[in-house]
Design a protein around this nucleic acid. Structure first.
Lengths: 340, 340
DNA sequence: TTGAAAGCGCTAACAG
DNA sequence: CTGTTAGCGCTTTCAA
C-alpha cells in the first residue's frame, strides 16, 4: 500500500495514451463517437494505471451520479437497521449505489436543522436524491428529490412512506380484549414522534369502542428504549391492581417489559401478555407477539419511489401507506418451549 | 419543498453580503482574520438563504473533509451490522462523519477488484480515510489511509483489526471436551475467508491435543448462512453415530443448527451442545453459547486507528489483535427457561 | 473522430 | 482585514 503518491487523474491517462483529456472523458462516459482502437488503448491504460474517476470532480460537472443518500440518525438502533436492510435490498436490485450519512448519535443530529443540513449537503452535491429516516423537519430545501420513511410529521410536505400505525394499534387491542384482557398497560413512545401518538390513539379508541373505561394509571411515558420499557413495566407490574397485558409502543421497550416480567417471576404469555410494535428479530426469538411495521419493506419501497422521482416521474407528494398488522409469534414460542 | 431551484452557492452569499467569495469562504472555514461585524452579517445571510457548502467542490480543493468512508459488502448481514454499531459509536465520539459505501449485495461487490475500486473512489475524492470490512484484496492503491476489519488475508499489507480466531476456537473445543464430548461436529465457514480457516484449524488442533482421532465425517462445508447451517446440521444429526456437540464457524449457522435440533426433537444443551462464533443478539436470546469476536469493538477500534492515521501518526502497518473468548450464555438460558 | 477551452463551486496563495 | 486570481479534476460545448 502506498498512500503518499498523488492519485492518478484523467490527465495522467490522457498523457499516457497520447490523447486529450476530452477523449478520455468520452471513453469514461461511454460516448459512441470514439474510434474503437483509441477506446481500447485508453481502456487498457486505465486498467494499468488503476485510474478511478474523482467522485467530487465528477459530481460537480454532471447531473447524474448514480448515488442515493440515506440520512439516518443512529445506525446502532434496531429500528434503523431494519429499514437499512430493506434499503439495501432495493439498492442491490438497482444500478444505484448507497451513501449513508450519519453523525452517529441520535442526540447529535436528531434536530430538524441537522437533518435539513445533511439533506442539502448531499443533494446539492453528490447524490441524485436522498432517503431520510424518521425525519422531524417540516420542510427541506433541496434541488434533488427526497423520500421520507416514517416521518414524525403526520402530513409532511414531501413524499413519504408510512405505516398504518393507528390501524395496527387497534388490531392489537382487539386481539388482547378478545383474549379477555380488561386491564391493559401501555408503554408510550417518544412524545415528539407522530407514529407514537397514533399508536396511543389506537389504544385509547379501542378501549372506548369496547366500552372499557380508560385508566390513565395504566399509560406510562416512554422513549422507545429497552431500559425505559423495563423501568415502566416494572412500575406497572407492581401496582396493587396490575395489568394482565402490556402493549408497548415499540418492541425494544417490549423487550424491556419481557425483562421486568422475568425478574418478577411472571410467565409470558400465561401470566402476562406482551405485544410490541415494529417486529425486530430479537422479539421473534423471545416469542413476543408483535405488530409488523414492515420496517424493511418501508425502506425498500422508499428506494423505489425515490428512483422513480429521480427518473423524472411526478409523484412529488405521494404518501405510500404500508399496512401494519398483528404478527402472532406462536410458532416461535413453541419452538423455544420445545427446545428447553 | 422545492427541488427546481438552483442550489444557493457561495457566490450568492457573497453578492448578498456585498463581499467577495473569499471572505465568505474564510467565514465558512472559521478563519480568524475577518472583522466580526462582517462575519455576523455573512453568517446571518447564510442562515437566511439556507446555504450549504457543496461537498464536491469543497472536497476538490481542501485536504481535510472530516469524513470517514466505510466499505461494507452487505449491510443486511448481522455480521456487518454488529461491526457498524461499533463504528457508529466511535464516529459519534469523534468529529468525523460517516459515509457508507455498499452495492448492497455480497455477490455484486465481493471481489477484490470492486473493493479496490470503492476504496480508490472514496479516498481519492471525498473521504479522509476508509475502513473496509472483510476485505479480500491483497493490496489497495490509495492516497489516504485505510484500516481493514477482519480481513480475509492473514497477513495483509495494510493496517488491520483482527480477532484471535485460532485461540478462540481452541478455547471452545477445550470447553466441549471438558464437558465430556468426544464426537464434535464442525460446520465450516466460507472457504475463501481466512478467519474461517483459522477456526477450523483450532478445531483440529484441539482434538489432536486431547488425543481424539479426527473424524472427517464430522466436518461439513458451510458459508456462514443460517440456511446452510441448518442443512448440514441436519445431515450430521442423522448420522448413525451422530455428534453430541456441534461447533459452528459463525453464529448464523449456529442458529441453523438450533433449528435442525428443534425439528428433530433434540433439547439444547441436554441432548446437543451448540457453540457458534461471533455473538450476535439472536444467539443471545436463543441461549446459544458463543465465542465473542467483539465485532462491534473491532469496528470501534478500527475507527480510532484510522483517525490516528489521518492525523499523521505512523502506525502504517499495525495489526490490532482483539482477544476472542468463550461466552457462556447460561444466564440467558435461565432467563428463557424461567419465562416459559 | 478529436482537441482546445470554458467553467462547475470552492479554497488558498498573494497582494493590497 | 479584504479582494484578486489561479487552479482542483472533470464534462461539455464549439471548432477543427
Amino acid at each position: 500500500m502506498n498512500h503518499k503518491k498523488r492519485a492518478v487523474t484523467i490527465q495522467d491517462v490522457a498523457k499516457a495514451a497520447g490523447v486529450s483529456v476530452s477523449t478520455v472523458s468520452r471513453v469514461l462516459n461511454g460516448k459512441i463517437d470514439v474510434a474503437s482502437d483509441t477506446q481500447d488503448r485508453i481502456l487498457a491504460i486505465i486498467g494499468d494505471l488503476g485510474y478511478t474517476s474523482n467522485l467530487a470532480a465528477r459530481s460537480m460537472r454532471s447531473y447524474k451520479k448514480n448515488l442515493i443518500g440515506l440520512v439516518v440518525p443512529d445506525i446502532g438502533f434496531p429500528y434503523s437497521i431494519e429499514i437499512m436492510k430493506g434499503v439495501n435490498r432495493a439498492i442491490a436490485e438497482s444500478n444505484f449505489d448507497l451513501l449513508l450519512y450519519t453523525t452517529g448519535d441520535i442526540q447529535k443530529n436528531g434536530t430538524d436543522l441537522h437533518e435539513q443540513h445533511y439533506v442539502s449537503l448531499l443533494n446539492n452535491s453528490i447524490t441524485d436524491g436522498v432517503i431520510i429516516v424518521a425525519s422531524a423537519a417540516a420542510e427541506f430545501i433541496t434541488n434533488a428529490p427526497i423520500v421520507a420513511v416514517d416521518p414524525h410529521v403526520v402530513n409532511p410536505n414531501y413524499p413519504s412512506v408510512q405505516g398504518t400505525n393507528y390501524h395496527g394499534s387497534l388490531e392489537v387491542m382487539e386481539y388482547l380484549i378478545g383474549q379477555g384482557h380488561r386491564r391493559i398497560g401501555f408503554i408510550s413512545g417518544r412524545q415528539d414522534v407522530g407514529s407514537a401518538g397514533r399508536r396511543l390513539k389506537g389504544y385509547q379508541d379501542a378501549l372506548a369502542n369496547a366500552g372499557i373505561d380508560l385508566d390513565e394509571g395504566l399509560i406510562t411515558p416512554g422513549d422507545f428504549t429497552q431500559k425505559i420499557g423495563y423501568k415502566y413495566a416494572r412500575q406497572l407490574l407492581k401496582l396493587s391492581n396490575p395489568p394482565t397485558a402490556i402493549f408497548a409502543a415499540n418492541d425494544q421497550s417490549a423487550i424491556g417489559v419481557f425483562e421486568a416480567a422475568e425478574e418478577l417471576g411472571l410467565r409470558i404469555p400465561e401470566d402476562l401478555s406482551v405485544v410490541g410494535f415494529d417486529n425486530i428479530s430479537e422479539a421473534k426469538y423471545l416469542g413476543l407477539t408483535t405488530v409488523d411495521q414492515f420496517l424493511a419493506d418501508m425502506g425498500y419501497v422508499a428506494v423505489q419511489m425515490l428512483i422513480k422521482l429521480i427518473g423524472g416521474e411526478l409523484l412529488e407528494l405521494e404518501t405510500y401507506k404500508m399496512q401494519t398488522k398483528l404478527v402472532e409469534r406462536t410458532s416461535c414460542q413453541k419452538l423455544i418451549q420445545t427446545a428447553y
